[in-house]
């Protein structure tokens, strides 16, 4: 009676990247999820939601609907969790067909860091990003609330990225004051201001690697800015291999304002093969890839908060890690 399925017949695919969306009620979590679904751009995203009654799913997009799962024609799926988030998450995994990303919307009083544990343990998920949505107008009063204060602070400090939402509903002059207050409550955590939770979905899930067809000058930092004014990117290119340990050290030194890095690197240990670098908010993997097709060349893109990191310092850090 111990199992519905014998353990030996269970099969698991590679770890799915998992983004946790937290924040108090009314902050804009659902708006953000709608925004993610509307900008999925072919990604098959599985979303575990607090209550899918609140998600605006276009009826024409619904492929099928079962007890707690809604599957969409674009490959995305939503699962309603009620009181049992983790059970719903695994139910979604078992029932929704192949997925590429998981997004969990936590309840308004949940500790997102505890929920993020599923992305730190075991082979099913890999924690991608913890994003906390805060309502610009109400977050301070929630922190002042006798019952809620510590819960909201725990949410804010669990964030890799805080979205200060609904700034359009606030006087422009109040924003710096709010920023200063947030810096005190959640020191050092990257923040961006937005309205209707409209942020680049790539930043929440994954950014595309540099286009291999575009050759770039070796050793030159290139700026391109596909993400508007909020984020900026910088590329590192080199044909010299990295000392592996030194690259780990360099990644460990990146400031918190760098949210993502992605691309191919050439390592001293494995100079004849590509190594795939995937960095998100202080966590990274260096994964063994294919043999280099032509000339081995490191090329990765780094993306962070606009104006909040020093390109020259980055270049120095990575260059010093080269062999």
């Amino acid at each position: 009676m111990s199992a519905d399925t014998p353990a030996d017949v269970r099969q698991f695919g590679p770890a799915l990247p998992l983004t946790v969306v937290g924040g108090f009620l009314g902050a804009g979590k659902t708006t953000l999820l709608n925004h993610i679904l509307a900008n999925a751009k072919g990604r098959r995203i599985g979303i575990v939601v607090n209550d899918f009654g609140e998600i605006n799913i276009d009826e024409r997009l619904i492929a099928r609907r079962t007890d707690r799962i809604v599957s969409l024609t674009n490959g995305c799926a939503c699962c309603d969790f009620g009181g049992t988030l983790y059970d719903s998450l695994f139910q979604l995994l078992d029932a929704a067909g192949p997925l590429e990303f998981i997004v969990i919307e936590t309840s308004g009083v949940a500790d997102p860091d505890k929920v993020a544990e599923v992305g730190r343990v075991g082979r099913f998920f890999r924690l991608n990003l913890v994003v906390i949505v805060a309502d610009a107008a109400t977050v301070r009063s929630h922190v002042a609330d006798r019952y809620l204060g510590d819960t909201i602070i725990r949410q804010l400090t669990a964030a890799d990225l805080i979205l200060i939402n609904k700034t359009d509903l606030m006087e422009a002059a109040e924003i710096p004051e709010l920023e200063a207050w947030l810096e005190k409550v959640a020191p050092g955590i990257p923040r961006i201001a937005c309205r209707t939770a409209a942020v680049p979905v790539d930043m929440l899930l994954d950014v595309p690697p540099p286009d291999p067809r575009v050759r770039r000058a070796v050793g030159t930092g290139l700026v391109h800015d596909p993400h508007g004014r909020q984020f900026e990117s910088w590329s590192f290119v080199s044909s010299r291999p990295f000392r592996t340990a030194a690259l780990h050290d360099a990644l460990a030194q990146l400031p918190r304002t760098i949210l993502r890095a992605k691309g191919l690197v050439r390592l001293d240990r494995e100079a004849e093969r590509q190594t795939i670098l995937h960095y998100v908010a202080g966590r990274w993997t260096l994964e063994r890839g294919e043999p280099w097709p032509v000339m081995p060349q490191t090329e990765f893109v780094v993306i962070g908060l606009a104006g909040r990191f020093e390109r020259a310092a980055l270049e120095a850090v990575f260059t010093s890690a080269l062999l």
């Binding site: 009676m1 519905d4 269970r10 983790y86």
Partner: peptide
Amino acid sequence: EVAVMKVALHGVGANFNAIA
């Protein structure tokens, strides 16, 4: 933690709450 326990239970198809 609940999250860790759930991952372990799911991973081997074990469920203490299932009422067969």
